[in-house]
Amino acid sequence: MSGHPHASNEVQSDGQLLDATDRQIIVATQAGLPLVAEPYAVLARQLGLETGEVLQRVAAMQARGIIRRIAAVPNHYALGYTANGMSVWNVCDDRIAEFGRQVGALDYVSHCYQRPRHLPLWPYNLFAMVHGRSREDIVAKVAAIANLLGEHCRSHEVLYSKRILKKTGLRIRE
């Protein structure tokens, strides 16, 4: 949930600069690796690098947190995880860090953020995106979160998604 670099030397999340070669690797891999026996060798040839250097740079970017993980990325929607509920919670301010961490660590919660309240319209300060195959599935998971928060949560709601109107991923331009 944030911006994407436009210039070639933007400060990254760890405060370090990403050099031009790192950026080329990002651009070349963000749509996915080629499904061939030696995908990094293919990349290396495209970029005029050695395979070892590509592997090393990818590992370094992962160590710096620029790459979060390397994955076969499932399309949850196509797999039937069509229900997604944005659960919002009014949690005591003095306990939110502790509870945020606990909720964020639940494996059915994909995103968990603290956001400001806008009283009186919007009393909720903790957001947790809950995924499931059905609404019943989400109701059960939300109940488990409510149970975890107990009396430290004054109220909560679940906002079910009805339509995805626009969804674009990370865009780094060449």
Binding site: H4, P5, T29, G32, V58, G65, A71, V73
Partner: peptide, 9 residues
């Protein structure tokens, strides 16, 4: 896709 998942910047 199969590949790196980049952290939001």
């Amino acid at each position: 896709r199969v590949g790196p998942v980049f952290a939001p910047q």
